[in-house]
Design a protein around this nucleic acid. Sequence first.
DNA 1: TCTGGGGTCCTAGGACCC
DNA 2: TCTGGGGTCCTAGGACCC
Length: 412
Amino acid sequence: MKIIFHLDMDAFFVSVEELYNPELKGKPVVVGGQPNQRGVVSAASYAARKFGVHSAMPLRTAYKLCPQAIFVEGHPKRYKECSEQVFRVLRSFSPQVEMASIDEAYLDLTGSERLHGPPMLAAHKLHEQICERTKLNCSIGVATSRLVAKICSDLAKPNGVLCILPGEEARFLAPLDVRKIPGVGKVTEKGLHDCGIRKIGDLARLDESFLEQRFGKWGLALAGKARGLDAGGWFDGQIGDHDEPKSISHETTFHEDTRDGRLIDATLAKLSEMVGSRLREHRLYARTVQIKLRYSDFSTFTRSVTLDHATQLDIDLVEQSRRLFHSNWTGKAIRLLGVHAGNLQLEEGQISLLEGEKHERWKNALGAVDRIRGKYGSGSVSLGSAMGGGFRERVHETPADLPGRHRHPDDD
DNA sequence: TCTGGGGTCCTAGGACCC
DNA sequence: TCTGGGGTCCTAGGACCC
């Protein structure tokens, strides 16, 4: 019998902001940006939630609901640091830890009773330690599967611990809305409602074959989930084998929609450089380059190309993303641009001798660029391609005379 | 309600091969 | 040249999560 913990930080981004600015405590706070900006709420304090503000809501809407809220920009670096601190506490507790996102983690505490005592006691011990060492609140769910542990931590919020004993899973789940099942969103919920299924208990009573027929592979997994099992999908597998990312992407929404070709080219270059930099950080090579574009009417398209040889070089990403863009752009105003690297692998594969030399020089140059970025922040150096836009010739310059842009280290 | 950014997984059609 | 059945790869889109 497994013992799984799911730990979820409470209002994580808001709580971190409060650490840096204690005056925010207890007030309605919205993290995500200013209310006149294009964007959505990343996190809302409990005081703001009382007004109906919640994450993923447009900032403008949040402002209408709660004009007295304090709107603050997000600080990804701070969140990452706090997340790492949480991870260290968890690691000191159990070797089998898996960060599921920046603010939640699974722990496998199976067979740890001699060290930590009964699960409920262990959970409270962990809760205390997190609070003491990070000054942040969290909630913990304890159960025999990831699925039930996750649902528990959700119900334990804020700042609580909830444990479901072995054998009690089905009874615990039965009265809950199907929406509580991770993976059941708006669409699946509607599909289930259409079949008259509202509670997890309704789902558990159904025939597996009916669900499979109606919802495919996902339906089969749902049947297991309704019974509290980590059936199918993301939930399978051991806790703790943290693997490499499967894709790396960056995207940006313009403050105002644009048809400015130079701005578009510059943006694609900038996004490509960000993607390339992270590929090299992970020592990964991408075989597929994908761009994403969104027009003013919010219609969204992706176009991708798979290369013969995997790459981690900015020039390749810039070239491919620009090519994809210009052979698909309708000329309408653009709202969003994205560059995505997929099909990631550990090696680049064979490279022709002729290409090899140019390749080597670029590799060395980018290594230097990354080191400077590491020291002074991501905005400190940029290849010329990101600056003016449309400078295709420049992209092909040898690295010896790379045009660099230098900024003060404090710029970020 | 005028809708971010970073991910994962799944589906489905077509190409291509045996 | 009235035609099957798999398997795999590529591409595009979509649901969902935080």
